[in-house]
């Protein structure tokens, strides 16, 4: 089997792909990046927590004009995953306002981005409508 690597280190692959946040142990603020301290309470202790793989689309845009090399149009969104906000693309949907709507229910999905020289496959994530 091809070796796989996630696009970002907060994407956990395997049988049950999900996102992992760094949660501040004192105020429970959640972050996806490497932390020096908590932006909310300045605490320095964090624990890894699994983020819900389903959520609601709180905001979106359909990007029609982007940097060269970025395929357009695509849907960029803000997803509320049971109280944790996540940034991601809405995938497996027609990128037009008739098919994407505020409040729509979505779930995490993963897809291969390509294989590098060493034969490692990168895996990205997006959110697809729950039909």
């Amino acid at each position: 089997m091809t070796e796989q690597i996630p696009l970002v280190d907060y994407l956990e692959l395997g049988d049950d792909p999900h996102l992992v946040a760094n949660e501040c142990t004192s105020c429970h603020a959640r972050f996806f990046d490497r932390r020096n301290a908590c932006a909310s309470c300045s605490g320095t202790d964090f624990q890894k927590v699994k983020v819900s793989t389903t959520g609601e689309l709180k905001a979106f845009t359909i990007v029609a004009f982007a940097a060269p090399g970025v395929p357009v149009p695509f849907v960029a969104g803000l997803i509320d995953c049971d109280g944790t906000s996540v940034r991601g693309n809405v995938v497996n949907v027609e990128p037009d306002p008739e098919h994407v709507s505020l409040g729509m229910k979505v779930r995490l999905t993963t897809y291969p981005m390509g294989t590098d020289e060493a034969g490692t496959e990168a895996i990205a994530f997006g959110f697809e409508p729950i039909s």
Binding site: L7, Y10, F65, A66
Partner: peptide, 17 residues
């Protein structure tokens, strides 16, 4: 974020519009 590739367009958008 330990990203293996640029994320603009893959994880949302960085464009101001």
């Amino acid at each position: 974020y330990g990203a293996v590739a640029p994320v603009d367009g893959r994880i949302g958008t960085e464009t101001m519009p």
